[in-house]
Amino acid sequence: MKALFYIIIGVALMVVCWQLVKLLGLTKKENQTATPKENDINGKLMLVLMTFIYVLMVLSLWGTREVLLPQLGASEEAYHIDLLFKYSMALILVVQFILQALIFWFTFKYRGTEGRKAYFFADSHKLEMWWTITPAVVLAGMIIYGLWTWNQVMDASDAENPLIIELYAKQFQWEARYAGDDNTLGNANVRFIEGTNTMGVDMSDKNAADDIALAPNPETFLKELHLPKGRTVIFKLRSQDVLHSAYMPHFRAQMNCVPGMVTQIKYTPSVTTEEMRAYPDTKTKFENINALRKSQGKEEVEFDYLLLCNKICGASHYNMQLKIIVEEEADFNKWLKTQKTLAESL
């Protein structure tokens, strides 16, 4: 068996280590805690580790800036979330820089030497009080600001004339249903699933007839979820089989789809697909992506909003997607007119 071969390689590596141990003189008598020389070398190396961490931080922050989601959040809610995110990130980065510096600097500065005497310092209520109160105050600020944002984002009660859309998840695809002229979704349950009624809509419910099930684009054969810019969309989420999660990162929106339950999330798209494509950050990101794809012999792509599944749901979880198109409200309405109602299609 091949596995055996690899195990043998592993054992061989261990033997090499063994030889290493012998070389290093395992049995030599040594100062058991640490010699001044060891303290000196390792204390200095700790500064190297600190530098490594800082470089990694800066590189990650700077080097990945084009990789991140387009900085521009594509919904009104995203604006609040991004602002909160920036403040929180700035705060934790500052704290991170300072605390790591203290750890590694102290380690270096107070590395053991022959004559050094440690300072017996067991307690200081004043200091401790300060560093209990300071985080408490800062956190209180974060909590208040955070919860204010959370309520802004989650509260759908004052949305004017919202558009209601059902997102329906199943292994491993998304379906969607617009609420139609009455803007009310007809009842649904998996027990009504039959033939082309794949979402299990109860057609005896009077609200159901005008609902519009999202059909594939006749040209691409793919489903594309259209959303109007500037109008609040309330998503009602359902699942047919296992947990899924509707994750729409550009809109900073995510909500789980739970079998047996209807969950909800809302947002107001604020940037159309066209506008987002023209945004400089997006352009750079997609130039990079396309250069890479070209080198791999893949076709070029354009920016599109996406709905991803973000709750482990089985083998093809990694490829459960739906394209989203945000357009001006007039275009959206025009598109919606071309779609068949359930009464027509079933």
Partner: peptide, 26 residues
Amino acid sequence: LLIAIPSAVKAFNYITTLWRGNLQLN
């Protein structure tokens, strides 16, 4: 976020323990 407070206290206390020690870096 409350739980961050005792966690922060622990972190600060570790750092202060390093301060002016005679660190044996084994």
